[in-house]
């Protein structure tokens, strides 16, 4: 099996890595690019822990091949903060205790960001359905939904 050289943009930076052609983007990001903030909870698209955006579109990186990243643009949780300034979602997740173990948090943040960019003032129901692809086993989602509401409010104020 021959690896191919993939050239892509990750969190605004050009990144190149050699990748076996059947390797998932999740594995490539974690093991070749070193972005272990992208988590594997299931590997089959059912838990959302590996959520990233690919050309602005929310996807599970476990269901994308590494080679498909060629020439595209990827955003992960590692790219959310602006320098040392956390994204409002990151701030509100901490403030509202929206994480316990924290393994699902990167996926939730990426998915919530995609939601708020599309829909700046979502209802509780819209938040819940938009985040249905992200499993959390610790919190019962209560504080996560509240944190997303608070971040949405904050972001609308800034606009």
């Amino acid at each position: 099996m021959s690896a191919v050289l993939v050239s892509t943009t990750v969190n605004g930076d050009t990144v190149e890595f050699a990748c076996p052609q059947d390797e998932t983007l999740l594995d490539a990001l974690r093991n070749r690019v070193g972005l272990t903030g992208v988590k594997e909870g299931c590997g089959t698209g059912d838990c959302g822990a590996c959520s990233i955006t690919l050309n602005g579109r929310l996807v599970c990186s476990c269901l994308v091949l590494g080679v498909e990243a060629s020439g595209n643009s990827i955003e992960t949780v590692e790219g959310m903060a602006d320098g040392n300034k956390l994204h409002p979602l990151q701030e509100k997740f901490i403030e509202h205790a929206a994480l316990q173990c924290g393994i699902c948090t990167p996926g939730f943040l990426v998915a919530a960001k995609a939601l708020l960019e599309r829909k700046p003032n979502p209802t509780v129901e819209e938040i819940r359905y938009a985040l249905a692809g992200n499993l959390c086993r610790c919190t019962g989602y209560d504080k996560i939904v509240r944190a997303v509401q608070a971040a949405a409010k904050e972001m609308r104020k800034k606009k």
Binding site: C60, L63, G133
Partner: peptide, 9 residues
């Protein structure tokens, strides 16, 4: 079909 993530693909 699936989540927002799945819909993206």
């Amino acid at each position: 079909i699936g989540s927002d993530q799945i819909q993206g693909r």
